[in-house]
Design a protein around this nucleic acid. Structure first.
Lengths: 194, 194
DNA sequence: GAGCATGATCTAGCGACGCTAGATTGTAGG
DNA sequence: CCTACAATCTAGCGTCGCTAGATCATGCTC
């Protein structure tokens, strides 16, 4: 019986190896460089092995994206203190979000730009993603009045995402990134607000 | 001499044919379906003629994107009245922008999501693009205080772009699109504002 | 008007892509 | 020891963007 267990263990290890290798490759050379051939070569297996773990390349991207959601949720949580949750906390959260995106561009692409086959805004939304959203909801919700908290968070998040993607694509000048972020935060959570 | 002129005319016609065919193909079947082979077949020429007009596929996308910028600028201009430029005008502008994106998804992708080789936020920025931005600046600028108008417009635009892309990618529920837009407008140009 | 040179256009092919069928290898159980 | 099964690989399919070299048509020279 323990033979099966060993094989299963090796399988899990290889699964992790594929995901982490794909992520490394994407982070150093971009997702265009993550081809099934290169990936197979890096993990020192043949191409078809990848397809015994994932239905296709999309699913590999999805696995990396899942890691990203978990890390994003953890990073955001670490940036939010227990007690005071005023404008400063929102600003810190926004800053943490954009810093995360800027610091992990390939990861961010896997999460939000590439086709990763993951369900969104759906009952099957992955837990870490829902968790990150709930954290935003928690911090931002009290500033939403008279808006609905859900809509408020969605819109704020979309604005952050827009800033991130347009800046990364060179559509917005790279300087003043911080100023735009401050402006956005001010508009959603005015300074005189409690 | 007029032989050269005729040839040049034919060349210009073919150039336009390539761009419009690429655009149609993208709008009906998505940009993934726009391959050099299919495109060549549609215009009833061989593949290499494409490369006598454009340096590569990116440049074809760029040509379609340029059309898009011109149309977007014209559409936005048509939505802006001469005289009253209060909150309602901003709301109409925002609505026009997202409607344009939703109504021309492939065009919008060419402009902002795909690699089209066009320069942005740069002295070489294409005129129609600069024009559209200036229009936004014109309408939004007076609501920017105490923010800098440029930053204000960039941030508002980024927010619109974020809403558009996340909605299109299924990351935001498709209903309530209009409500999010209203919320965004309210936050950038409060209702009691002149 | 015949022959040539030039430029436009095509055929054919390169290397790389995602993905898969079928051969091959290794291993567990009778 | 042998068989049967599962894991893994080799090889290849159809497609992609792009290009070298052959071919064709056309206007120019004598």
């Amino acid at each position: 019986m323990s033979v099966h267990e060993r094989k299963e263990r090796e399988r899990v290890d290889r699964h992790r190896l594929i995901v982490s290798t794909a992520r490394e490759l994407a982070e150093t050379d971009g997702w265009d460089a993550v081809t099934t051939r290169r990936l197979a070569e890096r993990i020192e297996y043949s191409q078809p092995v990848l397809y015994s773990h994932f239905r296709g390349k999309n699913e590999i991207v999805g696995a990396v994206a899942l890691e990203g959601f978990a890390e994003l949720a953890a990073t955001l949580r670490a940036a939010v203190p227990e007690v005071p949750r005023g404008r400063d906390t929102v600003a810190a959260l926004a800053r943490t979000y954009t810093d995360f995106a800027a610091g992990n561009p390939a990861l961010y692409d896997a999460m939000f730009s590439l086709d990763n086959g993951l369900p969104f805004a759906d009952e099957a939304t992955p837990a870490p993603l829902r968790e990150a959203f709930d954290l935003l909801l928690d911090v931002l919700g009290e500033h939403a009045h008279p808006d609905e908290p859900g809509l408020f968070v969605e819109t704020f998040w979309a604005a952050l995402h827009g800033l991130v993607t347009l800046t990364r694509a060179g559509r917005l000048p790279a300087d003043r990134v911080h100023d735009r972020l401050t402006l956005l935060t001010d508009r959603f959570v005015p300074r005189q607000d409690p």
